[in-house]
Amino acid sequence: MADSNPTALLRRTGPDVADIVRPGLSVRTETGLGIAKLRIFGRAADARFQEIAGIAPPLPCREIGSGDLAFAWLAPGEWLITGAEAAVAAWVERATALGADDLLAIDFSHARTAFLLEGESARAALAAHCPLDLWPDAFPAGAAARSLLGDTGLFIARLADTGDAPRFRIIVDQTMAAYAGRLFARA
């Protein structure tokens, strides 16, 4: 966290969710992850994204990396930006400074909780509560989606594998983090 950044200085007040580490599955809370959303209104949203971000937008249901940040497609004209808290806050500040009225960039790092799931059983643990097809054909590394986790919504992105085991980043509402933790504790 950059000490000079007031956004990053906001204290996280979310519940502490105990990490789960057992053979075949580890679920860890990811601290210090900045999470922001970019919405662009209008029909030429993808072209406008390129103007603002300086890179081609990710394809639907995909996440791409650019420098310290990752950009994931959420919906037409809507993207999720993740990365180090200070880097995300700086990006949002820059986008907002454009003063354009067809875009909205919001840093909501403190309203969400991120988990890293990895291990051979990660798919099974997710499949118990999430209706997505997470097998490699439908959800390869670099895929991202919004879906459900039990009674709450989640964002899920498949990161680069560790060895043979898949690795997922999931993001849920901060108020639902303890609930998500309980789901995985029982999965």
């Binding site: 639907p60 249901c61 919906a75 037409p76 209706p131 997505l132 097809d133 879906s147 459900l148």
Partner: peptide, 11 residues
Amino acid sequence: PHCGPRAEIEY
């Protein structure tokens, strides 16, 4: 049309 085949409970 945007996300591909998904389960009914998402809708």
